[in-house]
């Protein structure tokens, strides 16, 4: 029974909290999920992974490289199939991709033949919304990520950070129940990263989507998350489930607060154990 399955009821929000914190209804549930690549003889990428994410929570996943974070997101998105176990979103079992699970990828995945606005309209268009409605949606989310002026540009004319902002707008425009983000800022320089983190914080305070966010960057994890799941090295298991008890709205200065540093130290310790074990 090595599986860590710690469902914590999320505590009442602190006094500083204006926005509602995580709800009590479970949005995403991952139960005893195994993933084996390349048949029974192949690589075991995930080993009995279980956790639940309540509605409106910003949940961050950290772990050593190759521990299966991307794989887990692809499974939840329905892009890969689990070997064992079940995944459910809002009580509905996942067996194929669907627009209830939006995803922002680490690689740039904007459609190069569409303009920025058309990219954001893509999901609403697939749903059959009329032109005026989907344009209004696209313009709203483009404003949200600060790219109104670039609506008629093609992705090839944008910087890396702008592309990921469009990707976020595109995912949100489809109004998913869960937003999956696989190191969306991983390819950006540290300055752009900081700008993107601030932007994501702001956007999230507005939408309060349920988010599962993968990152390598521990500061980013604590800054953004309500909760941090730490994974073991391959095969990936959930090693620790930590609550980030830092009030929102968050800002960059918080990286110097004692609670922040204490949590960071803890996560670094957990990750170092994993990396040491591997070598």
């Amino acid at each position: 029974m090595g599986t860590v399955k710690q469902f914590r009821p999320v505590p009442e929000p602190g006094a500083a909290d204006a926005a509602p914190r995580s709800g009590t209804a479970t949005s995403l549930s991952v139960r005893s999920v195994d993933l084996q690549y390349g048949g029974p003889q192949g690589t075991l990428a995930l080993d009995r992974v279980s956790f639940e994410v309540p509605e409106n929570q910003f949940c961050v996943l950290v772990g050593p490289s190759g521990c299966g974070k991307s794989s887990l997101l692809y499974l939840i998105a329905g892009l890969h199939e689990v070997t064992n176990g079940t995944i459910a979103v809002n009580g509905k079992q996942v067996d194929e991709p669907g627009r209830d699970r939006g995803m922002v990828f680490q690689s740039y995945t904007l459609f190069p033949w569409l303009t920025v606005r058309e990219n954001v309209e893509y999901g609403p268009k697939r749903q059959g919304m009329d032109a005026a409605t989907r344009r209004a949606i696209a313009d709203r989310f483009l404003a949200e990520v600060g790219l109104t002026q670039f609506a008629d540009h093609h992705p090839s004319q944008l910087s890396g950070g702008m592309k990921q902002r469009v990707a976020i707008a595109r995912a949100l425009a489809n109004d998913p129940d869960v937003l999956l983000m696989d190191e969306p800022f991983g390819a950006l320089d540290s300055q752009t990263r900081g700008v993107m983190q601030k932007l994501l914080l702001r956007v999230w305070e507005h939408s309060h989507k349920t988010v599962l966010f993968v990152t390598h960057d521990i500061d980013e994890a604590i800054l953004l998350g309500d909760r941090v799941l730490v994974m073991t090295a391959r095969p990936g298991r959930i090693k620790a489930d930590l609550l980030v008890d830092i009030p929102r709205p968050r800002s960059m200065d918080m990286v110097l607060e004692p609670e922040f540093i204490a949590l960071k130290r803890k996560i670094i310790g957990l990750l170092h154990d994993e990396i040491d074990e591997e070598h």
Partner: peptide
């Protein structure tokens, strides 16, 4: 994959 997650 991105197009699938957008409902294609």
């Amino acid at each position: 994959n991105a197009s699938y997650t957008l409902g294609t």
